[in-house]
Amino acid sequence: MSDAPSSVPEPGSAADVVRTWDARADHYLRMFRHEWDGKPFDLDVLNAFAGRVAEGGRVYDVGCGPCGHVTELLAAHGLDALGIDLSPRCVTLARQERPARRFAVMDQRDIAGERLDGLVSYYSLHDQPKGQLAAALTSWAAALRPGGQLLIVAKEGTGDGVVDDPLGSDLRVYWAEFTEYELRTAAGDAAFRVDDCTVREAYDDEIPTRRIYLSATRHRG
């Protein structure tokens, strides 16, 4: 028997995110290319976020995925939007879908010092262990200027581990869910003022889990 180390990366690691999302990016694009057609609440929340950021403001769509539709929406509001994702395949597809918009392969957990005016995390937290939530929020706070706007959208729950892919691929993937208390606490500890936190029920064609929408402002000073 070989003693060579396994080539499978640690679940929830950056390498694992790349592995799983490179493999299912095309599947996700087919499922969610027209996501806004059936999500009026999400559209309202994202439009409101864009309205809180001054025109021309620098914003990151972290974990943009292969569709690029959040980046597109933000840019359509006159924002200087960049979609970032760890998965090269996601970024390639997003560039094909939205050739007029900007995308880059970057780690959302390593963007401190960017001096952004806004940051959107639209379901980008589910691929990493819940124990990394505080570090992610701290990195985002360090990337936002004082007064900068944050929007987090996450699925509600207590799950934290490897599961069969809820999106329907044949993969086993890391899957973390969050409570409103966890998101509020992490944001507050990371120098954010929570302005609003709303929970909605799943639409009929969604994974049957409630969604959390947290809006916050980076503290001044």
Rank of each mutant, 00 (worst) to 15 (best):
A75S: 11
T217C: 10
H69C: 13
E156L: 06
P11K: 06
R109K: 10
L183P: 05
H34F: 10
V199A: 10
I111K: 04
R101Y: 10
Y122T: 04
G56N: 02
C197Y: 07
D165I: 03
A100L: 12
L46W: 07
G65D: 01
E35W: 14
G221Q: 14
V53Y: 06
P129Q: 01
L93Q: 09
G68N: 03
V199S: 08
A154Q: 03
D16Q: 06
T71P: 00
I212E: 06
V199Q: 02
T198V: 03
R58K: 15
T92H: 11
G38P: 08
V62S: 09
S139W: 08
V194P: 01
V105I: 05
L82T: 14
D165G: 11
I84S: 01
R52C: 14
D61F: 05
P208A: 11
G83E: 08
V120W: 12
Y213E: 10
P129G: 01
A216V: 00
A75G: 05
K39L: 15
D205H: 09
P9H: 01
F32Q: 06
S7P: 06
G159N: 13
A134E: 14
G157K: 12
D205C: 06
E97V: 10
H34Q: 14
L82R: 11
S121R: 08
I84W: 08
R95K: 02
D204V: 12
D204H: 13
L116F: 11
A54T: 14
L171P: 02
A216P: 00
R184H: 15
D44K: 14
A76P: 06
G83D: 13
R89S: 07
G63F: 03
W140L: 03
R101G: 09
K155A: 14
G38Y: 08
L43V: 09
E35K: 15
D22A: 07
L150N: 02
H34Y: 12
R172Y: 02
K130F: 04
A202R: 03
R30P: 04
A94P: 01
L74H: 01
Y123R: 15
G38F: 07
R102W: 09
G12I: 01
V120E: 12
P9D: 04
Y122P: 04
I84G: 06
Y181T: 07
D16P: 04
S87D: 00
Q128S: 15
M106H: 13
P9Y: 02
D85S: 05
L137P: 08
P66R: 13
G147S: 12
